[in-house]
Each structure stands twice: as structure tokens, then as C-alpha cells.
Design a protein around this nucleic acid. Structure first.
Length: 272
DNA sequence: ACGAGCGCCTGTCGGC
DNA sequence: TGCCGACAGGCGCTCG
């Protein structure tokens, strides 16, 4: 499910006072429970529960779609994949059906990793670079320029959409935001990357950033049964709008398969 | 280097 | 009602 804006929304919520009470930084982990072993990528369950016990959360960062919890000694990384969510609740709350991993705090609350489809992963490591080291640039980093994007596109001869979704090329875009950004820049998802012009790249760079910023501003998107309060779905221009009319030109939005993923675009605005 | 196909999982929805 | 396939915000692997 979540792409960069949804992950960022979760991160920001944990840094503020909220329904969960005080921010997560400052809390001390007293106990961990792994309910579905494959959720824990590394280390093994025994090492994980022993090692994380007593560590405090000192900060929360994000890299692409990864949440990065800085602990007193180690670093905890979480990837929500398709259906993962992080919930702060009382230790006494009834165990929800799809809870996969729990971190209990000294203050009587716990952080629950809930993940229906079990694709999500958690790491506890001393060096996060081992996990996120191969990610591409951070699209909202001011240091990431249209020139960088242009050089990247020229380095490959790949269909634009799968390349933009390749996390080692650019970190954070998923199926929704890629379709929206391509529409925003009027580029066809199957256009070959090294055929994108410099001017088009400037538009694409703008569209990627604006789409992600709009998503964050709306607290992400809430679709299907995964609802966490975001409103970006109200601003979709192509995603999930198959057969509905393009807001720009009135042409029906088409849905095709690209790299095994549903892809939505306007055949008039986005021509090959 | 690139794309297709598939596995990993559970749940929902639409058609028959 | 039941069954069955298609589909879902991700990613890693193998195979041509």
C-alpha cells in the first residue's frame, strides 16, 4: 500500500502529540513480541527480542518507503510493503487479527505492526546502510535536481514507469504516485527513458515533487480497506479512474498493464 | 540490461 | 448461496 507520502504521514504523526499521546521519541522499549516470524528479516527472533529490550527511541527518519527508528544502540527499519501499518495502542488492547510484531513501551502503550498480507518487513541492525544503501535519490531532497533525473534517464533504455518505480533509481514512488506524476508531466508510461527530452525531464521532475508534496499535504491516500485518514484519493487524476474522463481534455482514462502493474493514463494528454 | 513471470499472503469484489 | 478468477499502494527471484 504505502508509498512515500503515506510513510511520511505516519512518521510525522509519530513525532507529534496525537491520539497515541506523546511523540514516540523518548519512549523506552521494555519488551518485544514477534507474532509472525517472517516479518522479521533480521536478526533472528531471540537476538531481536533480547537486543531491542531497554532501548529508547531517539528519532524517526524516512528513506524512500522505509521508516527508520533511531534507537539508543541500534537502528530499527520498517517497510510496510502492500498492507502494513503501524499502530500505537494500549498494551491491554485486544490483539488485532493481523498484528505481526509488537514493541511494548514503559508507559503502558505498544507499537503494533499490523500487516494483513504479511509482505512487510522489519530489520534491527547497527548500520542502516546495509538495508537502504542501494536506494536511489530521495525525490524531495533539494539536492535532487532535474539534471540528476535527466542523467539517470539517459543512463537507461527502459520504459518510464517501471524505471521510476525502481527503488534503486528513485526512492519512494509506487504505483499510484507514478501514474499521477506521469500524467502531471504528460508523459506516456511506456516512453523509453533515454528518449525523454531535457524540457520533458524538467516537467517530470516538477510533477514528481508536486505529486508527492500534495500527497503529504493530504496525509496520504486512503483506498480500499486500508484507511488511515488521508485524502489524496480525492485528487487522483488517473489512478483508478479507468473509463472516466480526463479532467484536462475529456478523453476516457485508459488502463493497461505495464511491468505486471495496472497503469492508468490519458491516451490524449500522454502520447508516445 | 531489460522485461516477463512468478512467489509471497489475505481479503474483497464481480460474474456465473 | 457458493465457487472462481481477478485484483490490490511492493519487491525479490529466475529466466530468456
Amino acid at each position: 500500500m504505502p508509498e512515500l507520502p503515506e510513510v511520511e504521514t505516519i512518521r510525522l504523526s509519530f513525532l507529534r502529540d496525537g491520539p497515541h499521546g506523546k511523540p514516540l521519541p523518548g519512549r523506552i522499549i521494555t519488551h518485544a513480541q514477534v507474532l509472525w516470524e517472517r516479518t522479521l528479516e533480521e536478526p533472528d527472533v531471540d537476538t531481536f527480542t533480547r537486543r531491542i529490550q531497554g532501548q529508547a527511541i531517539q528519532g524517526i527518519e524516512r528513506r524512500g518507503k522505509f521508516l527508520i527508528f533511531r534507537l539508543s544502540q541500534d537502528v530499527l527499519l520498517v517497510h510496510l510493503r502492500m498492507s502494513g501499518d503501524l499502530i500505537v495502542e494500549p498494551d491491554s488492547a485486544p490483539m488485532a487479527k493481523h498484528h505481526r510484531l509488537l514493541l511494548e513501551f514503559q508507559d503502558g502503550q505498544r507499537l503494533a505492526f499490523n500487516d494483513t498480507r504479511k509482505f512487510g518487513r522489519v530489520w534491527l541492525v547497527d548500520d542502516p546502510e546495509r538495508v537502504v544503501g542501494s536506494l536511489g535519490p530521495e525525490p524531495l531532497d533539494p539536492a535532487f535536481t532535474a539534471g540528476d533525473l535527466y542523467r539517470g534517464l539517459q543512463n537507461h533504455r527502459r520504459q518510464l514507469k517501471p524505471l521510476l518505480m525502481d527503488q534503486s533509481f528513485l526512492a519512494g514512488l509506487g504505483n499510484i504516485y507514478t501514474d499521477e506524476a506521469l500524467h502531471g508531466s504528460r508523459l506516456h508510461p511506456l516512453l523509453l527513458s533515454n528518449e525523454v527530452t531535457q524540457d520533458e525531464t524538467v516537467n517530470l521532475h516538477d510533477a514528481i515533487r508536486n505529486t508527492l508534496l500534495k500527497g503529504i499535504q493530504q496525509n496520504g491516500a486512503s483506498i480500499d480497506w486500508v484507511y488511515r485518514g488521508g485524502g489524496f484519493q480525492e485528487y487522483f487524476k488517473v489512478y483508478g479512474r479507468t473509463g472516466q474522463l480526463c479532467f484536462e481534455c475529456g478523453t476516457p482514462i485508459e488502463r493497461i498493464l505495464v511491468g505486471q502493474r495496472a497503469t492508468h493514463f490519458c491516451p490524449n494528454c500522454q502520447r508516445l
